[in-house]
Design a protein around this nucleic acid. Structure first.
Lengths: 147, 147
DNA sequence: TATTGTTATACTCTATAACTATA
DNA sequence: TATAGTTATAGAGTATAACAATA
């Protein structure tokens, strides 16, 4: 009875984990639902991967944990939509190099802006103390997600 | 320079929204990825809807925002798996009433436990002050998601 | 022979349209 | 005729296996 008072009990920990997980999943769900755009989730994900650097289909398939034929299909569609460009590698005739087009970059920006807008509109009305708390929580959650 | 110090600027607000959204989405993604179980996401969702009360296929289709034939298919599979039971409505011969079986309830519990475990293992190591902060953040996020 | 990428084929989830049974 | 549910059919995403081209 004395040892439990000062620290977090297992029960409290599980409770916190459940509540926090549900809150994150619900927010994630709402954001995804709200920001349904011109490209599907798996297409958005590939565009985001190409943002930093051009990549080969194989690389993308590995990162996204899908098969090579699946990635071929996804990439074909993105090329068709004009969001991704395909180029050959002069040093290795087998390889294909994929990169974002200007339109692809614009699409990424637009989708992110839309997602953020949903979140901004909900946070804006909160009292300053809640915002400050979420600011700190955000950093902790980011670390938790990275683990 | 004097007015901006005390309150949240638009820029800070958007920044917070982006960070918080990304953190929630990443955690959600990790949880879903980690807890891939016997049933697919859309099946899990239907099981959860049947937890509180039996429902008709039509009701489920409306709640889950899918077509009636899609729900027929999903339900068929869940019945095949023994997780959902099908019964006729004596008052209306057209209607079908779906409810969770004992096995369906057990499956829901098992999946939730698995999802929680991932979150618990990550939160457990945090300092007590972070846990306390997340406890408060969780409540705020829950309200935000509900809006 | 190993690697990169595509094509062939099949399974699942989704949808719309057509159908059956009941009200 | 209107409603609940299913069946018919098609489109998109996924997978594995087989193939072509290059190293």
């Amino acid at each position: 009875m004395s040892a439990e008072a000062s620290t977090t009990t297992t029960d409290e920990l599980v409770h916190l984990a459940t509540d926090l997980r549900l809150a994150c999943m619900r927010i994630s769900r709402r954001v995804r639902f709200e920001s349904t755009d011109t490209v599907a989730p798996h297409q958005f994900s590939v565009l985001a991967r190409l943002e930093d650097a051009p990549r080969s289909p194989r690389e993308l398939a590995a990162i996204e944990c899908v098969s090579a034929p699946s990635m071929t299909r996804t990439v074909n569609r993105l090329v068709e939509l004009g969001l991704v460009g395909r180029a050959g590698n002069p040093d290795d005739g087998r390889q294909v190099i994929l990169s974002l087009t200007a339109s692809g970059r614009a699409t990424l920006r637009r989708i992110r802006r839309k997602r953020d807008q949903w979140m901004v509109s909900r946070i804006a009305e909160l009292p300053a103390s809640d915002k400050a708390l979420l600011r700190r929580a955000s950093a902790i959650l980011a670390k938790v997600a990275q683990q």
